[in-house]
Simulated assay, not measured.
Amino acid sequence: MSSLSTTRRSAVAIPALAAVLALSACSPAAEAPSAGTLNVVTTTTQLADFAHQIGGDDISLTSLLAAGASAHHFDPSPKELVALSQADVLIVNGAELEGFIDSAIEASGFAGELVTAADGIDLAEAKEITAEGEHEVEAGGGEAAEHEHDHADHDHAEHGSGGHDHAADEAAGHEHAEDASAGHDDHAEHDHDHGDVNPHLWTSPRYASAMAGEVARGLAKADPEHAADYRERASAYEAELAELDAWVGAQFERVPAAERVLVSGHDSLRYYLHDYGIAYAGAIMPSFEDNAEPSAAELDALTAKITERGVRAIFVESSMSPKLAQTIAREAGITVVDSEALYADSLGPAGSGAETYVAATVHNTQVILEAWGHTPDAVPQGLGAAS
């Protein structure tokens, strides 16, 4: 497994966390894992949904992050550390998203199977897409059609995994990251270069499919007794994600390229924009993170670019305050979409209609299209509903 970056590690000291963990383990708030099921902990809400779709009733699931929370500025609570200490499997995003996780693993004493969902993706390709988007912003963009994604010819399974043939891997008995069977101590042997990769990999349904495949392999390895069930559910879920990808692509293909220009709260939708031929004009927060501080000069430059590119709306992610976006929108004379926020860093809470990854992606697509003055097609049966 890949080692996780400590460049944005939580400032909480390891000894202090360990002491809190010891006290919390004796408190009524520390809940024991369900007997007879694989005890799985995930970091993000998206990963929790992937694990739920694939694990079904064979796992007991805990998400460290709640709906609306962001991994960019998260510190685990004592209860969350206790859950981690009791986990058989920990599923993380990787790609330097979870700056808190190394500290949490060490403090909790977690020694189970570590599954890094980003390992299912071709991170070299993701790095190229990240750099491509940054160049687009610096150069003032270009026609969105240059990045048109041909869904009619797209081989979802092949490209979603970055070119890996996972069926062949399984047939050959391939064990992805064999060191995980001994815990997380040997990650360094499989270190990947995650530098300069936007960590919001899941925003592309084809990348989400590859991440879900990695989750399925991790669960199957940790629980061989139910491996066939995990693979069967994963196959069905990946088919659903392929249908989602095709539907989203069809919606944006009807929008003229010149109108497909987006500004968001922070740089959270890079892979989604790339896959569907949407030009990226920039973000309010000049970072992958949603808690960065833009300078006055950066805000002025973004306002000028909004006017230059004919941007029709600013979209705010659910994990962010809309105040800066509202100010910029007033100055630029455009709409800010904040009452129906985009779900990027987190899925939505119960009742939001965005409780699952599929539903959140459908929601985001509908909100963007409607703000651009286009009516999306009816959602195919089975897509968009929380499950």
Rank of each mutant, 00 (worst) to 15 (best):
D122N: 15
A258L: 02
A188N: 04
G133K: 12
A208G: 12
E132P: 01
I121A: 05
H147N: 12
G173W: 03
D193E: 10
W247T: 01
I121E: 00
N198T: 00
A250S: 15
A250R: 11
Y207A: 00
W247M: 00
G195E: 14
S181L: 08
L114D: 00
E253C: 00
E189P: 04
E158N: 01
D179I: 08
D153Y: 01
A208V: 07
E158H: 15
S235A: 15
E189F: 09
A124R: 12
A222D: 07
G141P: 06
E128Q: 15
D122Y: 09
E148F: 15
G213N: 13
Y237S: 02
K127H: 02
L241W: 07
L123R: 02
A242P: 07
A131I: 13
A188W: 15
V137D: 07
A236V: 03
G163A: 10
K127M: 03
L123W: 12
A212M: 04
A182D: 07
A222Q: 07
Y207S: 13
G218H: 01
Q251F: 03
R254V: 08
G213K: 00
E146I: 02
L123C: 02
S204Y: 05
D165H: 02
A220Q: 00
A152K: 09
H135D: 14
A168P: 03
D229T: 15
L244Q: 00
T130W: 12
H174W: 10
L201S: 02
D165I: 11
V255C: 10
G133H: 14
H184K: 03
A157S: 13
V137E: 15
A228Y: 07
A258G: 01
E232T: 09
R260C: 06
A188G: 07
G142D: 07
V248Y: 04
R217S: 10
V197I: 15
T203K: 01
A167C: 02
G183Q: 00
H166T: 09
I121T: 02
A180F: 10
H200E: 07
A182T: 08
Y207D: 05
L244G: 05
E225S: 12
H184A: 09
H147G: 10
H187Y: 05
A250D: 11
A257R: 11
L201V: 05
D122F: 01
L114V: 01
W247P: 05
E132H: 09
H154N: 13
R233C: 01
G142M: 13
E134P: 02
L201P: 03
A228W: 06
A126F: 08
H176R: 08
E238C: 09
V115P: 03
A228K: 11
A131F: 12
H149I: 06
K127E: 04
E143Q: 09
R233N: 14
E225T: 03
G141Q: 06
H176C: 06
H192I: 05
R233Y: 00
I129F: 07
A124H: 14
A157C: 06
A234G: 08
F252M: 10
A157R: 12
E132W: 05
A171K: 06
Q251K: 10
W247I: 09
H176F: 11
A144D: 14
W202A: 11
D179G: 10
G133Q: 11
A222H: 01
G183K: 03
G218I: 00
S204M: 13
A180L: 10
A208W: 14
D245V: 00
D122A: 10
E128R: 12
P205E: 06
